[in-house]
Design a protein around this nucleic acid. Structure first.
Lengths: 109, 109
DNA sequence: TTTATCTATCGCAATATTGCAATTAAGCTA
DNA sequence: TAGCTTAATTGCAATATTGCGATAGATAAA
């Protein structure tokens, strides 16, 4: 029926999947990379940087804010966006832990 | 409308997003964790392990195979699945590289 | 060959995501 | 206040994803 059956899985599994979902769009990757590159905060010239319409960028920023990867502060008429370092580190650790599960090279099918 | 505008983004950005998309479902996370835990190959008792119907599991396995995270070999009537260590390492490195972009703690908005 | 077992595919329904035009909301400046 | 700029929200259309029943394909055993 189209909806993910989250109740079948552990909290951690849903967490990892949710984090991955936040990264599962090139526009959001581009936004994050841009924010990392610029370091200091940036507002909505993301609209210029990427080729997407303003409501679309706003939507992607909303999702990134929802998972805590990005912060926004109102600066006059503009909004200043930046990476949330705390969540960023959480993401790094979670993915790192997930992939560090040792995968044996040889005894595969 | 409704389709991702992949042509607006770099190859790398689409790659990361594509990899993230493969992980963006708890069932696929659960499958990968199970395969890592069992180490040696496993077939479709994933259906028992997770509570999803056989066609649904098959679908998720297909996606994991499509991105190369999982291999399958026919073993009689069953199919033996396992992690593809090569792709697994590629994923780990890509995500690690992405998140290791240094995010400064202080000068945020 | 027939039967049993296991997996893949098809087709469908329900839901989610993507993208944007139009509009609204909020703040600055004159 | 009115006018301007910027961002968020709304509403819609197009597409993608999720999940499963039914079916088909492949192989082993009788």
């Amino acid at each position: 029926m189209g909806a993910t059956k989250t109740d079948l899985f552990t909290r951690q599994q849903n967490d990892i999947a949710g984090m991955a979902k936040a990264l599962a769009h090139p526009a959001r990757i581009a936004i994050l990379q841009y924010l990392v590159k610029i370091n200091t905060c940036i507002c909505g010239d993301l609209v210029e940087e990427l080729g997407l319409a303003q409501p679309t960028i706003s939507q992607h920023l909303k999702e990134l804010k929802a998972v805590g990867l990005v912060q926004g502060t109102v600066e006059g008429t503009a909004v200043c966006y930046c990476i949330n370092p705390k969540t960023w580190k959480q993401y790094r650790e979670l993915f790192s832990k997930f992939f560090d599960s040792s995968v044996s090279e040889g005894n595969c099918c």
